[in-house]
Design a protein around this nucleic acid. Structure first.
Lengths: 207, 207
DNA sequence: TGATTTTCGTACCGTTCCGCATAAAATAAA
DNA sequence: TTTATTTTATGCGGAACGGTACGAAAATCA
């Protein structure tokens, strides 16, 4: 494994890293995603990343810090995907359906069983005993709610008269929540699609 | 601790139990509820129930079997509570609001932080790696969906014209899902109420 | 080349984990 | 009382846990 060499950055003094921390972070996230935080051991993470424990520790800190880093990145990616989907051209109904279809595909992925949403599938369990996880989860929900609300309130007349974009935004996030837990329980593509199509019908009004 | 003596049952041969297995099961469930399955040790369970490990093992089997027993009981209680709430007199809107208010109260309970729903908060994480948990979770969702659908389709004319009770039933369960995960993330009573009121507005039609 | 700095790999530390072996205690039957 | 049976309590054993010390390896700098 050869290190990448970003031009212009002065080479650090000692022995260069033999791995890409960003890749390792994704591999660690995949492991947490499958087994959850508590059931994932440092040996699991070591095997998944190909790094030994000292290298993991040196790059990310202890297991908890590594987990928080995967949560933070995953939330940022989810939020970016939401923004991208909601900024696409088309009606609210159209972009919501596309967004949920994309989420459904992600939730059903996974080599050893459908994994659902990373935050819902792993952080929800830890959040009662861990204030940092809980705070990140609450922030993630709030930002998703706001993202949906922004798009739903963007074009006057697109929603049924009297609709409250903020309230509907929270329900749009609720659809993601139910898709996430149901995917983890094994629901297939048709089952998830039926749910989000019915949800979009309610949020945007039947067409 | 004195044993209960159900009349008519022939006394078992040996030393009688010094504890009530049903009470112990609830105490074990509360521990799983707070920390999740993987993070809960047999010592935690022993401390919570007041039993030592051999007694726990003798009464319930290993940790996994004990956990499955708590899941099964919790699901049965949830389903019974749903049936009771939906069979109450009143419009669909009224009974749904009452049901969600009751769920919200349960989800916000907990001595050390809001715990949400037991199944959503703990089983969703385990369900990818454990087929038994996954099957129980899927069954639980399906039965809740069916319970809601049954009530929503029970009285013709109660829903907006053209509404599909089966699809709305799944969305009614979705409201429970989002309440459960948001409670675990720390959402307060007003936040949860705003969500389920908006959800009921959509499902039953604005009043 | 040699010194310096950082990473890598092995091995280890103390702790905690789950499960059980064993014996004492408590009750019913004989 | 004696015997049989079941539940308690103590404590052990092997494995896995998270985390780290330490020396070898690989790069840059002088």
């Amino acid at each position: 494994m050869v290190q990448k060499e970003p031009a212009g950055s002065p080479k650090p003094r000692g022995r260069p890293r033999g791995f890409d921390p960003s890749v390792a972070l994704n591999q660690a996230r995949d492991t947490f995603w499958r087994k959850g935080f508590s059931a994932t051991s440092l040996d699991d993470l070591s095997a998944a990343t190909g790094l030994n424990r000292p290298s993991l520790y040196g790059a990310f800190g202890d297991k908890k810090a590594l987990y928080l880093a995967t949560l933070e990145r995953s939330h940022a990616e989810m939020l970016a995907a939401q923004q991208r989907a909601l900024a696409a051209p088309g009606t609210a109904r159209y972009v919501l359906l596309a967004l949920y279809a994309g989420a459904s595909a992600i939730y059903r992925a996974g080599d050893s069983g459908q994994r659902g949403c990373f935050l819902i599938g792993t952080a929800v369990t830890e959040s009662v005993a861990d204030a940092e996880v809980r705070a990140l989860l609450a922030r993630s929900f709030a930002e998703l709610d706001a993202g949906f609300a922004g798009r739903l309130g963007a074009r006057p007349g697109e929603l049924p008269p009297g609709a409250d974009p903020a309230a509907l935004g929270k329900l749009a996030t609720a659809i993601l929540h139910t898709l996430a837990v149901r995917a983890r329980a094994g629901a297939d593509e048709a089952a998830l699609r039926a749910i989000y199509e019915a949800g979009v019908d309610l949020i945007c009004g039947r067409p």
